[in-house]
Amino acid sequence: MVSVDGNPQGLEHSAKTARSAVISASSVDLTFQTNDGPVHALKDVSLDIEKGDFVSFIGPSGCGKTTFLRCIAGLETPTGGALSVNGMTPDEARRARAYGYVFQAAGLYPWRTIGGNVKLPLEIMGYSKAEQEARVRRVLELVDLAGFARKYPWQLSGGMQQRASIARALAFDADILLMDEPFGALDEIVRDHLNEQLLQLWARTEKTIGFVTHSIPEAVYLSTKIVVMSPRPGRIADVIESTLPRERPLDIRDSPEFIAIAHRVRDGLRAGHADD
């Protein structure tokens, strides 16, 4: 575990890690067999994510960041190494509905209202009608869409749709939230706003979040831990424990600390590219 030098908060944090890793990967390998021969999507990936962590995965396309998130979710199966989620295999964790997953596109059903879309996982998981209503109300409030339950997706902006898809992932009791470039398709201004909201949401819900991005400022602003990955084969180039406080106003991005971390992320990305 690497941490920014001389930071007592970071040390304390990593001491806790060993005891309460929610997601634990050791030497995870994933090789896809394609017509052009094997592709090493992931090679020797080892990582511990503790409860309450906000972990960002950053790297160029093809570095395996999304693939690793999908492995955690049990949507891909590693071909080697060990991966555990809540002490179970990823597939068991998926069946136990241990995490909510937010995709790049909001993927709301056009034939359902916003409330109906948030209700989808609750219906599938067999919550009672009253419980469904209560939860929909609560999570829509959480993502600031309280008045929109009866609207249809096409009546909402892209940013609002993505917030609704986050609400959908929060609606059931999963401690882990996995997000695959959720704001990638949105413009910078909307993205800043949603990043700020996401931090508030994380503080209120105490979820463990895995977040894939290719934006350095986004990764540094959001994360307690930044995992820098590099391609061919997909692997971890650096793991950076953030020294920023948990409470983060948007202007923290102008602080020297923020710039120092961003600089280290950029160095890690460059190192990964050097052997292209």
Binding site: L75, R94, Y99, F103, I124, M125
Partner: peptide
């Protein structure tokens, strides 16, 4: 594929 993956994350059955 994304829509089908979403249902897999809910561990939804084929009938659902």
């Amino acid at each position: 594929a994304m829509q089908l993956d979403l249902l897999r994350t809910y561990s939804a059955g084929p009938a659902q």
